[in-house]
Design a protein around this nucleic acid. Structure first.
Lengths: 198, 198, 198, 198
DNA sequence: TATGAATGAGTATTCATTCAT
DNA sequence: CATGAATGAATACTCATTCAT
């Protein structure tokens, strides 16, 4: 009723405002996550976004919701890249390698995000599930293609490999002797068929 | 004279008591670590050990000291196994594989310990350094032998590989679809020379 | 429109509430300081004010901020009295004596506050500096005038004398045989020129 | 009976040991007091003395006992200097000035000891009383002589003046602009008769 | 009698979360 | 709907004091 009193235009304006607000909030949260990790104090995020903490709780009741929202677009892009790579790369294995590279790029540049892949806290369960729901099918597709083309071993669980890749990206920053891409490269090399031609 | 004997005896007894206490404390801490991770509240550990918090601070001024002490023996055993395996296994690569298996066994059974390998908190720096100081040289030796025998690629950094293995063990429990040993197996397979015989 | 009015009003109301709260907090803190000194536990102050400890930390991040706020008005009044006395008293020395009396009155009635004048703790540095910044200039003015009129020795450091007066007020309560005003009177008498007329 | 079994010699040896111990303890405590103030942790004192904390508690059940013991000799010397100065100095006032100088020298070189003169904690009551019992009579004598010779005002309470001097010595170290001797000089100057000759 | 290990109360401080305005 | 003030549980750490050896 209140909405009716305000009229449709007002409601739309409101919604637009809310959206702008949410967008600003997500941008700010992303920055804070990079700087302080996904465990950053809620107040810091609110301050960075220029909103009150209450606003954050309204939009994202739990932290996982916020993290999910923050990275949704990027994860989305990563997910969509799978089929595309499969279509453009020379072989399914090449596509798989490229895709994993994208995944790694995504993870290592987000301080602390990789930890999400391993976190067992109940609050992160939703986020965890969301990541998997969105990316594992893509990964499945790539693995299936590469297995069918005989480029990688059969019997591999794409989920497990993704989880492994995620783990390898944890804490990659700040240690000059540890290069997540390099060790992921080793892992990916290990996927190849045991008795491949060369 | 009695006093002198008593004094000496008392001193030794005292130390023995303290040592027993320390042992009980380490056992309790190990259990709490398994249940709640290495970040478990000091009070919980104290309660589990049946001592006051002061006693913990007396024996282990900071948390890293406690963690180090808790896992010292096991890490020690792991370190000592390296040369032994090199002597008994058929090839250096076989020894390396077995040794990494031991390392993984050690890590995956200790909830949260693997996190230590990646933790960047200043409080964990000492512990981190200790782990590396003790295990990296062993790892170096195994890698050198396997590289010399032509079983693995050259140019690998054992430290980096250990770090990767550590990461792969993070959060291994509680996820039935993720088997740290299996993914480490993939990584280790990736170490092999690119153009190995078979 | 209603909303806009409400928004503005709400914001102002909020701030007013917070201010009221802060005032209550300051009053409570002042009382606790009198009863238990400026080192009183934060929790006691919070309890006395009927607020949570977090509220205190919100308003006054460190103890010095709280103490400063508690005594700001009184110190302010003391500072402002300097020039006024200079204008109304018969001679500069008389003004100085009266002003020091005010200062003493202020200090002796605040249990533990005088200790602030001597505290060397880093946390009190700000407070200490603030006290001095505000009062020393006033004191300088009074001393300069009294020196020019030939009523007191030259070469005195007003800061040092203030510090001395502050020290003389320490622990003045609770000892019936020690009267801060009396001993300060002795000190002030000692300021007079050595070869004054009478 | 046990003592009888040990024999007189043994008992005497024991007592000698205990005395040596107590002496070492006092020396160590004095050093720690200078370094960290009279509120230094008991354990620090014990460590400095090379004894267990229990030993300190045995010899000095409360901190005040320890402080008293630590400074007993020096206070004693100060007390004894009073009559001596009265006998050797030209006038009673000169003796008084010299004696107060001694008192100040004693206080300012002992970090935190001066605080004892103002402390109202029950634990320090004994110490406080002891200081006064020993020094006030001496001070009385000096004041009486100086008053009789007409060099200082009459009606002064020596106790109060001592207390004031003690206060003026508080926090004297660490502030280059505050010189306890100087301000005590002002106070002492203020003691002179209001209408003295020159 | 000396020791020092153990105790645990006391205190500061942070931060997620709620709710009146 | 947004705000941010208020809350208070949680946790680390210190240190005086006791007591078994």
């Amino acid at each position: 009723m209140v909405r009716v009193q305000h009229g449709g235009g007002a409601a739309r304006t409101k919604r637009a405002d809310a959206r702008r607000n949410e967008k600003a909030l997500l941008d700010a949260a992303a920055e804070v996550f990079v700087a302080s990790g996904v465990d950053a104090p809620v107040r810091d995020i609110a301050a960075a976004a220029g909103v009150g903490v209450g606003t954050i709780y309204r939009h994202f009741p739990n932290r996982a919701d916020l993290i999910t929202a923050v990275y949704r677009h990027q994860v989305e892009a990563c997910a969509e890249a799978g089929p595309a790579l499969l279509a453009t790369e020379a072989t399914p294995y090449a596509a798989l390698v490229r895709w994993i590279d994208l995944f790694v790029d995504f993870l290592v540049t987000k301080h602390g995000l990789a930890a999400v892949m391993q976190s067992d806290g109940p609050g992160f369960a939703t986020l965890h599930a969301w990541f998997l729901d969105r990316l594992v099918p893509v990964c499945n597709q790539l693995f299936a293609a590469a297995a069918e083309s005989g480029e990688i071993r059969s019997g591999l669980d794409p989920y497990e490999v993704m989880r492994a890749v995620g783990n390898l990206c944890v804490g990659a920053e700040g240690d000059p002797r540890y290069d997540a891409r390099r060790v992921v490269g080793l892992l990916v090399a290990g996927l190849r068929t045991a008795d491949r031609p060369g």
